[in-house]
Every structure is written in structure tokens, then in C-alpha cells.
Design a protein around this nucleic acid. Structure first.
Lengths: 417, 417
DNA sequence: GGACTTCGTAAACCCCCTTTCCTAACCCCT
DNA sequence: AGGGGTTAGGAAAGGGGGTTTACGAAGTCC
């Protein structure tokens, strides 16, 4: 019962691991890969062979080896395929098209006007934008390996239904089916929390870590959980809803209806409230504009503005308590601060958070945990969504296909992991 | 990197699964086992064969099968081995000797007097008690498969060092080495949180669940995490320290030095404080006796005492917020309330907690989660510790030993699980 | 007693990883 | 230029594991 593990999963995990490593350090040798992954040379060689045959990587020359036969080098074949990540957020839709080295080849960003949030409108919006990035990038459609879509709220991956999207009051929208009608590429659906976590796992600070927590600081707040080297989804794919954990019983009212949720103190609106409470008339405050306020705070930190310092410190105090909870519970190797608020406030916030977490967390788990900023430059939800597509493309490779690969086209489900 | 998974792990997990199932439903057939575990009949048959050869189970007759060959039945061979669980707690040491059906064959309980908490004293204490239960049960020593020891605080399993035990101010005590000098059986060391979780995973409400949280309510408070069908340890084996999560920022002072920890509200001393705050002169309060106070509260609930009802409701309110955090974060299938406070307050507490959690948790994860009381009748830390020993005995079975098993005695490390 | 049913073992097969062996490819030195 | 020496990497063998298939075993039913 519970979770069925098969030897195939091991293969898939190893394939991921090898490709991750190649992407991270692109001209690399089989020797290096074996050392980095802990796999035997033979296994690495066969996996590299698979990836070569898929044209995801190419041989790019040789490297001297102390006196013997030179090492063959392989690198990502950037043009070996394209991945599309779609980040459907509250107020915008980002679509990015990546090559296999995860460079952005084309990008489209559109605002969602308040009245346009019906599923049907959203879907045709997204479909049009996906089409436009493909042409914009000058890619043949056949090269698109898949499209990952990040949508807020709860997503049932098996059915592709957006069970609940808080912002637009969506209930049980069969999003995957709707998208399939307009988009011919393989589709992968999940939410931004998990997308961000997978992005960090593949390309960011969680790479090579067994246990990591990716803390998402945006308008909303949440955590993506990497446990045992893979994404933790929970039984109904809704793990990681950290934003509505209580840190101040009977505290501030949250949009979820409860009081004292983490989000009400460290989400962008919460930070604005922190600012308003500590210095009501501050010029840093842009009442109706979260982005501007957070940017103003960041500016303030640069010039050592005492108001900004106080607000960041207050915020870090809440954040520290909340993250300490995560450290105590999960005992992760690394906690990654991600999303736009973390990116905007950057190092100053990080320094305060580190201190605050150290005050709240137990010494032993704390000693084992590193707290870092995300190094992902673009929208992590986009990148993560694209990563789901990459994982999907890698999922069922090299299966029983006999000699003639084209004859036995198996009808495959979207990958479950 | 990260976590290395091998096909051997699959085998071990399946072995666990099959034995768990047999213990749970003791006269059972291979057919039933295959259906329950999802394994093929052939795999079940070989696994059952292994267990038979180990004499952990025996064939116990046949069962009619609709018109065909009767099914062979197997059952736990209770006398096929003995397991010892040691629960070293703040004020007492419990030692229980189990047969393979996990019945208690012998039990010893000794109080630890305040002055006797030096590691050396504790170790000889434990060793003597272990010896006494073995003779008391009339078991030959050879049949003891192992001794599991649960000790509070942080434990490094690789080195067997008790890194930090808060109650007695132990620092980096090489407990495993000390015990090895006195106890000849295989030893397994961990803390009560994880022991309780494993006990529930094997014999309790978490059996067959992929994701479960075992909430420990005693003097201290913590959570054991079952994720992906196995125990989650975290990077330094200290995951699950839920008791010091903040639910009331700047709330009650905790012994950990922080304020507003869950433990200060729902640990036994916290509950006493809840009582004292809501009705200072209550006769339910036994100032220096946690056990008596909790028992008095339980009695009060039975006769609908309004003071008791209020205290339990207050406690459940805190507990509800804390458990809701776990539900939101982990999205588990089941939350199990365990340990002596939960056992004492039982159903009335459970009812209040369910309600409180439902108020605080997000609807979607909440809908997928069941909250139940532990059904383990004895000390869960003892049972869990014994389970570690059972897992250890099962870990490296059927390995390459050629024909003559006795010649190739491999020197094996304690299992890392 | 034969036909039918069902259980459970044995053998064949597929997947995975590792170890071992051997050839390929390069260096250096004579 | 032609051997050693050295390292890379492919091929084959080997050890785990799980599943499918085939078949004998052990009953029931007619």
C-alpha cells in the first residue's frame, strides 16, 4: 500500500540527477558526473547515452586526462528542445519559452484585468500567449517538449482540475481539459509553490540536497517542500500551505478568515501593514501598490532609512518565527527565500531573518540549516512550470520500444510525480 | 547525491509491509497479502518464504477457497523471537519485552530519582532492567532479536551519541557505546517522537498510510512524521520538533527560552497553567503532580464539570491551531494523537480538537485528513523502540550468504533505516 | 474417476545498478 | 616511428528485485 516504489523510479531519479548536473556545469565529463552523482561509470555512461540519443545533450570535444585517453565532454544541447512555463498569477500571466539550457528565448507578459478572470477567457489568453512565444522564438512546434502551467490554489494533478483558486473564486475548473483544446503540446499543471520548489531543486539552492524548504514570499506566502530528494505533495497535493499557519493566535485577520496567519505579517500586504503600523505617515507607503511599496522599502534599506530598517526588522521577526517552525519541523539542509518580495528586499532581509530564525529555532536543527536567497533570476514559477515539463519529457525514456521506436508508440499518461 | 536509493530498499520496504500485514491480521493467506500489499503473488510467496525460514511466522493450516485448492495460512510465530523496548523518560524508565505478535511478555518500570540521572547510572540501571525482563519472561537470551532504546532529545544514529537530552543536561553522551558494554543484544537508539511514529506506522493508525503525523502529547510535545510511507528524519535526525513552534508570538515563556511555543499551551504543564488561569482555585489542580491533574481533568470531563470542559476547550483551541499548521504543511492522510495526555483526555479532547482544527486549517487539506486517537494501549515509545529492533532484525535478511549461512558472518552496522 | 477450480512454486523475463574485462586513445620515452 | 604506461569508456557478466507465465498440487463437483 501507501507508496509503490519500483526500480524504474530509481532510473528516473538518476536520469534527473545526471541531467541536472549537466545543466549545472555544462561542459562536463562522464567521470565528473559519476563522481558528482555517486553512480557507477557504467550507469552514467548509459544515461548519458540515452540523453545523447534524445538530443538533449551533445558531445562537445575532449578534455586532457593526466596522461591517458582524453575525457569526452558533453554539454546541454540548448537547441535540442524547448520548454514553456506559464505562470498564471493573480494580476498577470507570464509565459516564458526556455531552451534546454534554461535560457529564456522568448517571453510574454500580460496583465489580467479584473473582469477577465473567467476560466474560458483565461484559457484562450494563455493559449494565444503560448502560441506567440513559440513564433516569437522562431521555434518549430515539434521541438516544444511540453508546457508547464502554474496556477494558484489547489490543483488535482490526476484529473487536471483546478479545485480551488482563491483569487478568482474558481471551483473545480477542468483547466487541463480546457487547455488541451487549445494547446497541442504535452501539458503539466501544478501550483506556484511546488513549481518554485522544483525550480530550486533543479537549478537553485536546493540542488543536490535531500531536504529543503523553499519559502515563497509574494503577495501570498507558502512553502515548497523537498523531502528525501523529491517534491513532497501530501495526500491531496496541497502540502506546503505555510502561509496560513498561525503564529499569533487571535492576531491579524487574514483573508482566509482566520487570525494571526503568517501571511498577514510577511506577505506583501502584511508588510505594508507593518509599515503603516510602525510609521503611519511614511512616504515609503504607496497605499494601493504593493510592488511600489516593497521597492520603496528596498530603496530605503539601501540608504539606511530608519523607518525601512524598522519595518524590515519587524517583518523579519515574524518571518523568523515562522521559518523557525519549518526548521524545527523538517530539519532541512537549506531554506531558500524565493519570490519577488524576497528578491526585492534581498540581503538586508536575509540578514535579519537569519538572526530571527536563530533566536526562535532549536539549536540542533538550526545548526544543520542554511538560509539563503534564491539565485533564480527570472520568475521561479515560470521556470518551475517549465521544469515540470522537462521532468515529464524525461519520465518515460528508454522504455521497452524494441528496435523500431516509431512503431510502438505507447499512449502515455502525464507523469504523476 | 542527496539520498541514494537502491533496489534493496524496495525489498526491505516490501518485507516490512508483508510482516506488518501479517502481524495486523494474523491468520492470513498469501492471496490476501498480495491483495493488501499490491505485490504480485510470486513476490509475496518469496517474502513469506523468507519470514518462514527466519521462524518469524509459521504455517497454521488451511482455508477453504471457493472450490479449489485451499489457501495455506500463515501467522506470526509469537515465540519466534523477542524484542525489547526501553523508554527512558524524564522521571522513569520503562522496559517491555515483546513477543513477535507484539504482546508484552514482561515489563519493568522504575522511577528515576533526581540525583540518578548521570549517564553511567542510567546505563547500568537500564542494563539491569533489561536483564531482569529477559529472565522474568523466561526467554533464552539467544531469542532476543534486539533492544530498542528511546531517549529524549537529539540522537545521532550513526554514532549512537545522545547529543543533547534537555532534562538531564546531557551533552554528547556516547550512549550506544556505554550500553553496548552492558548489553549483548543488538541495540537501536532513537528518540520517543520517532519511536511513537514508527509504532503507529507498524501497528497503529498510520498503518498503510503514505503520509501521517503522530502528535505526541505528554509533558513535552512533539510530532513524528511519516512521509512517503517512511519515517522522516531530516538532515540531522531532529525533524518533528513541533513543540517549540510559535503559535503565540511573545506568548508564554517556554523552557526552551522562547515565548509562545505550542508546548507551553498543550504540554501537561501548559494544560495545568490553562487550568490555573481559567479557575485559579480549582480542586482539579494538583500543583506538583501533572499526572494527577490530567487524570482529574479527565474525571471532570466524565461528569461534565464546567471547569474541566473549559480547560479542555481552551487547550483544544491551542492544539487545534497547532495541528492545523501540521495539516496545512504536510497534507497528511491522518493525524494521530498519542502519548499519555492524549490517552487520558481521550474522546472529549479529540472532539474539541477536531472542531478547532477544522476552524483553523484550510478546507482542502483538512478534507483529506482524519484526526484520530492512538489505539496503542501500552507505552508507544517502548513499542516503537522495540519496532526499531524489529526493523533492524529484518533489515539485512536473505543477503548473499551462499549455501552455508554460518560461515559468512558479515559484520554489519546498525541499520540506518 | 474425470472435469473444473484455485493455490503456489518454478522458470523465464524485464529492469536496474555494479564490477570486471578489454579495447581505444593519448602520452612519453627510447 | 614504435613500444610501454595510463586513462577513458564500452561490452559483458553478475547480483538484486519484481512480474508474468507455465505447471504441478490439492481440493470440489458431477
Amino acid at each position: 500500500m501507501s507508496v509503490k516504489r519500483t526500480s524504474r523510479d530509481i532510473r528516473t531519479a538518476n536520469r534527473y540527477e545526471v541531467l541536472r548536473q549537466i545543466i549545472a556545469e555544462s561542459p562536463t565529463s562522464r567521470q565528473e558526473l559519476a563522481a558528482a552523482t555517486g553512480l557507477s561509470l557504467a550507469t552514467v555512461a548509459t544515461l548519458v547515452g540515452e540523453l545523447l540519443e534524445l538530443r538533449m545533450i551533445t558531445e562537445v570535444g575532449f578534455e586532457d586526462s593526466a596522461g591517458g585517453r582524453p575525457r569526452g565532454l558533453v554539454a546541454v544541447n540548448a537547441s535540442g528542445g524547448a520548454l514553456i512555463g506559464v505562470d498564471i498569477a493573480e494580476t498577470y500571466v507570464h509565459v516564458e519559452l526556455f531552451d534546454l539550457a534554461l535560457n529564456v528565448l522568448a517571453r510574454a507578459e500580460e496583465d489580467v484585468r479584473p473582469g477577465e478572470s473567467l476560466p474560458g477567457q483565461m484559457v484562450s489568453h494563455v493559449a494565444a500567449t503560448v502560441g506567440s512565444v513559440v513564433t516569437q522564438a522562431g521555434i518549430e512546434g515539434a521541438r516544444v517538449l511540453g508546457v508547464g502551467v502554474s496556477v494558484p490554489g489547489q490543483v488535482d494533478r490526476a484529473t487536471g482540475i483546478s479545485e480551488y483558486a482563491p483569487n478568482w473564486d474558481w471551483h473545480d475548473v477542468p483547466l487541463l481539459d480546457l487547455l488541451t483544446e487549445h494547446i497541442a503540446y504535452p501539458l503539466y499543471l501544478d501550483n506556484p509553490l511546488r513549481a518554485g520548489a522544483v525550480a530550486e531543486l533543479w537549478f537553485g539552492a536546493a540542488r543536490g540536497r535531500g531536504d529543503a524548504v523553499v519559502v515563497n514570499l509574494g503577495t501570498g506566502v507558502g512553502a515548497g517542500l523537498i523531502l528525501g530528494g523529491g517534491l513532497h505533495r501530501g495526500v491531496s497535493n496541497s502540502a506546503g500551505e505555510w502561509g496560513h499557519n498561525t503564529i499569533v493566535l487571535d492576531g491579524r485577520l487574514c483573508r482566509c478568515g482566520n487570525h494571526g496567519c503568517v501571511e498577514t505579517y510577511v506577505g506583501a500586504p502584511g508588510i505594508m501593514l507593518n509599515l503603516r503600523e510602525s510609521s503611519p505617515g511614511s512616504t515609503l507607503l504607496h497605499p494601493e501598490d504593493q510592488t511600489a511599496t516593497i521597492a520603496a522599502l528596498a530603496q530605503g534599506m539601501l540608504r539606511q532609512d530608519p523607518v525601512a530598517i524598522k519595518v524590515v526588522r519587524d517583518t523579519a521577526r515574524y518571518l523568523g518565527a515562522g521559518i523557525a517552525d519549518l526548521v524545527n519541523l523538517f530539519n532541512p539542509e537549506v531554506v531558500v527565500l524565493s519570490s519577488w518580495v524576497a528578491a526585492a528586499l534581498g540581503e538586508p532581509l536575509l540578514a535579519e531573518v537569519r538572526e530571527a530564525v536563530a533566536r526562535h529555532a532549536l539549536p540542533r536543527p538550526m545548526a544543520a540549516t542554511e538560509i539563503v536567497l534564491s539565485t533564480i533570476p527570472t520568475d521561479p514559477a515560470c521556470l518551475g512550470a517549465a521544469t515540470f515539463a522537462l521532468e515529464g519529457a524525461l519520465q518515460s525514456v528508454g522504455q521497452k520500444s524494441g528496435k523500431k521506436r516509431t512503431t510502438t508508440v505507447k499512449n502515455r499518461m502525464a507523469p504523476t510525480s
